[in-house]
């Protein structure tokens, strides 16, 4: 996946802090801080030095900064070697570079996730105990 530099419409620079629910229809480049939630119908690029404490939703994403919150990506997610994600991840396709830190559940499946709540981990069936067995 490639997100061209010229495609950025909103740029959250390194000198800026965004508080609240950031919603956009276009592509977003984050170099600064975001607290709250970040949702875009376009592509997201989180650069080195960016600090996001928010749930994140986007069509495609490249993450090289820090995210504390759940990440839901509709298509492709690329996690770079400098990235640190603390939260659950849900996406269709993922690539993780060596050195990236992920602390949370990771759900990768090509299934449609339009109706599924953000980064909800799959339910795991417990094996039946000895007493329950016939």
């Amino acid at each position: 996946m490639r997100i061209e530099e010229g495609e950025n419409e909103t740029i959250i620079g390194p000198s800026v802090k965004v508080d609240g629910d950031f919603i956009s229809d276009g592509n977003v480049l984050v170099q600064g801080m975001v607290n709250g939630s970040l949702r875009t119908k376009g592509n997201l690029r989180v650069e080195v030095g960016a600090k996001i404490k928010a749930s994140v939703e986007a069509a495609n994403a490249i993450i090289r900064g820090q995210i504390k919150g759940n990440v839901t990506i509709q298509e492709n997610l690329e996690i770079g070697e400098t990235a640190a994600v603390e939260g659950d991840i849900a996406t269709k396709v993922i690539s993780v570079a060596p050195g990236a830190v992920i602390n949370g559940h990771c759900l990768v499946s090509p299934a449609e996730r339009g109706n599924r709540p953000a980064a909800e981990p799959a339910v795991v069936q417990k094996p039946a105990s000895d007493r329950e067995r016939p």
Binding site: I12, S15, V16, K17, V18, D19, G20, D21, F22, I23, G32, M33, G36
Partner: peptide
């Protein structure tokens, strides 16, 4: 201030 979020500058140089 935007509709659902605010943007603050982290220093006075900007």
């Amino acid at each position: 201030g935007f509709l659902s979020y605010t943007v603050s500058l982290m220093d006075d140089e900007h």
